[in-house]
Amino acid sequence: MQAANMKTETERPHLTKKDLFQANWRWLWSSQICWNYERMMSTGYLFTMLPTIKKLYPDKDDRIAMMTMHNQFFNTNAYIGGFIVGMDMAIEEKKGRAAEETVAGLKAGLMGSFAGVGDTIFGVILPTIFGSIGAYMGLKGNPIGAIIWLLVNFAVLFLRFSLLPLGYTQGERLIYAAGDKLNRITDAAILLGVTVVGALIPNVVTANVPLVFKSGKVVLKAQTILNQIMPSLVPVALVALCYWLLGKKQMNSTRLIVTVLIAGIILGAFGIIGN
């Protein structure tokens, strides 16, 4: 027994490219597959690490300890979370179970900021840009925008696949070097998103005012007057109103949808707003 232990000290098993690929593949499919309110993505992280755990820890107690550690609360952005897994694998390969606390700290420390960057870029900005273009074309029955978006999603899939190996080979170096660059990229992406949203307002909101005022021979069409003040005045006003409403404590997105739906039906039925 003593000899066997000595051997594992000097000849710790190495992780190969195949191991990295396997973890990558598992992270892609499992990160959120058993998502739950209690520990969110913990099971996905554990599932990803299982082959690594099997390889690095032949000892039963080590295995149970590391599996328990990896099944603790974890939640990040699934698109870029693979980078954390890669860093983790590099550390565990070098230090084994001695790194138990380091790895737990690393996971807890990085998951929040990774979620922030990943959710902003992949969860908000990309869907805003390509969703806006796709919906704008889709409303006219043109599928090209939707197809472009599908292609982009495939491209993103390849990008995601490169992050785990990157985290494995140069995780620590990049984390310390890239903080500022990452913030600038996120800001630039937000700028692009906001510009597209600005263009979205006059393009996709249809709210004309079909009211007509008559006094004697003079006929005043409400929409003509509104257009002279500013094109798309009503859509802009509605967006501003909703933006303001969302700042109210009682209001959330679901309630706002219901409110606008009911208000739209009433205003439409009375002929105040139409297409």
Partner: peptide
């Protein structure tokens, strides 16, 4: 009246998504 109303509501509902987005972004 309901189908006219629904049609108008469908036209203005996108403002919700836009407003939520603007709240999320800086």
């Amino acid at each position: 009246w309901l189908s006219t109303g629904l049609s108008a509501a469908g036209g203005i509902l996108p403002v919700v998504g836009i407003a939520i987005l603007l709240r999320f972004l800086p």
